[in-house]
């Protein structure tokens, strides 16, 4: 990176580029979370189950993010690993009311962490314990306990509870992620 580039970044004239991968089981609220960062005129009112994946771009804190919104349905989860290589950050959305499938979430997370494209890289992971407004939702502490996040020390991670319908907690989480990504970018 040349001196001029550094200066540009320092002066916040040019924005940096990064791509993040949004994963999570079906019906956890991935598309709904990303819906908040769309411009008002593009916002979709009704969210339908994603087929395959869709790409969204938005800006957050001097960072141009390209989000790959992956489908969470069982038959499409094989697609996730093909995007690990290019991802500078991962957003893992969890339906905190679905206690039954918490083991499936844990299993998918373990598969993700053990993947060769993720294992030896420093990729920040942001967890959203989504649907916190619902009555039988687990708290973010309980979710992180259920997923065994306390023993995850190889990656920088952050968990925040969110409500994707109203957008509560979503922006805070994304701000943490963008900071981490910028930190990683400037270290390289």
């Amino acid at each position: 990176m040349g001196l001029l580039d550094r200066l540009v970044v320092f002066l916040k004239i040019k924005k940096r580029q990064a791509s993040v991968l949004v994963v999570g089981l079906d019906n956890s609220g991935k598309s709904t979370i990303l819906n908040h960062f769309k411009p008002d005129e593009q916002k979709s009112i009704e969210i339908v189950p994603t087929i395959g994946f869709s790409v969204e771009t938005f800006k957050i804190k001097n960072l141009n993010l390209t989000a790959f919104d992956m489908s969470g349905q069982g038959r499409y989860r094989n697609l996730w690993e093909h995007y690990y290589q290019d991802a500078q950050g991962i957003i893992f959305v969890i339906d905190s009311t679905d206690a039954l499938r918490m083991v499936v979430v844990k299993d998918e997370l373990e598969l993700l962490l053990q993947h060769k494209d993720i294992k030896n890289r420093s990729v920040p992971i942001l967890f959203f314990a989504n649907k916190m407004d619902l009555r039988d939702a687990l708290s973010s502490v309980k979710v992180s306990h259920a997923l065994g996040l306390d023993s995850l020390c190889t990656k920088s991670w952050h968990i925040c509870s969110s409500n994707a319908v109203t957008g509560e907690g979503v922006r805070e989480g994304l701000e943490w992620l963008s900071e981490q990504i910028q930190l990683n970018l400037s270290n390289n």
Binding site: D26, N27, G74, D98, L100, R101, V104
Partner: peptide
């Protein structure tokens, strides 16, 4: 029983 329960097939 084997089948769909919750959202899991």
């Amino acid at each position: 029983r084997f089948g769909r329960f919750g959202r899991e097939d």
